[in-house]
Nucleic acid binder design. Structure first.
Lengths: 123, 123, 123, 123
DNA sequence: GTGGTCTAGACCACC
DNA sequence: GTGGTCTAGACCACA
């Protein structure tokens, strides 16, 4: 996995995990990789991996069985979905629409791009 | 003006300025506020305000007349427009479309939201 | 049985056992559940169950007949009563009173809550 | 400051801070010690001090001005008060009352102890 | 100066 | 084996 420079690694891992839940790849009560295991596979310090798990646990996305490991919470999907939707609609969309207007991109043009991306398999 | 936490203040100010140029509010060769003045009005450290002007000057968006102040460059509009369009289409859109898919938001739904925002005067 | 996160499971089981002795549910020389049995019924690792018995044996609350099982020690009640009282009065109470003050809970209010809990059968 | 062994240091510091807010020693918008400063004064690693600030910020008790420092949030008192009260009444009290019953301590006896502690200046 | 992140490595309790 | 905490020290962006 490659990391961008402008966002903390532990947040990028968290996003990556949440996508896995949203896409259905990770299901409720499924066990996620052990902290150290994850650290090795992502070539990251165990502390950094742990940090990801801690915040996801705080958000209710993961839960922990002591001495056993971390698991996907049953409510994980709903929590993430709600959180992402809220953020997208209230935080991102206004900026996106504003930028579109400034760039003189019409919504129709946007749909055209959407379909083009789909067709190119870039999504 | 309120600032988001996840982006540097000086960059947020720069975006704010570039929007003013794109929207036509600021025109070529127009004088922009003095650094100190800006710092006071935005309740920001003068260093931070200065930093905004420095990077905008580097990008060719502003030019400086020593002892007088900063001015909007004649090519500002074109530079910003090109830069924003590039960034929006190649950097932002893929992520936006991906999020839309995960949130099960169709492009039609997006248009509906766009018009709703417009109607509410939120843009 | 549900376990809190902030205390070791084997200690929570031990407390649960000691309460049974204090409440008179478990009497002197009564046999307690076998380790494996306990582990199954509480959905806990056998090691964890065993650990509970070990520390209770160390404290003199249980005794062991090899090959037969664990039994409530005759002195169990007295040992536990003394230990709990000591701990409650010297360790817990100061913190409780401090919290009460910070929360502006008067002792009278506490009595009211006590009676309310009793009435609701929550105790 | 001395730390207990059975609770994480960063949590003990957090509790210590929250008490300061509850007791009125720390007021809204007051600046709290810088991370490194705190670390030195408590003889703790800066990471540990930082961790305390991070969770308090997550809870809404502190807020941050970038490059300047951490400050007590205006809602800090209410947040802490509500959180502590909830926890005390729903989590701690049932256990306390249960222990009291097992130890055959009457609420009246508890009040007597409360007044005794007060009189001794142990609170 | 401030916070924020990351690495490296250690120790511990618990399952 | 698992997670949880802590120290030490480094680097960076930002104000």
């Amino acid at each position: 996995m490659e990391f961008k420079d402008n966002q903390a690694i532990y947040l990028q891992i968290a996003d990556y995990f949440m996508d896995k839940v949203l896409s259905g790849e990770w299901k409720a009560d499924e066990r996620v990789p052990a902290v150290r295991e994850l650290a090795v596979s992502l070539e990251v310090n165990p502390n950094t991996a742990m940090r990801t798990y801690t915040i996801l646990q705080d958000k209710g996305v993961l839960y922990n069985k002591r001495g056993i490991g971390f698991f996907v919470a049953p409510e994980a999907f709903d929590i993430i979905f709600k959180m992402k939707k809220d953020e997208f609609i209230n935080k991102e969309l206004p900026g996106i629409f504003r930028t579109m207007d400034l760039l003189k991109l019409s919504p129709e043009e946007l749909i055209r791009l959407y379909n083009a991306f789909k067709a190119d398999g870039k999504l």
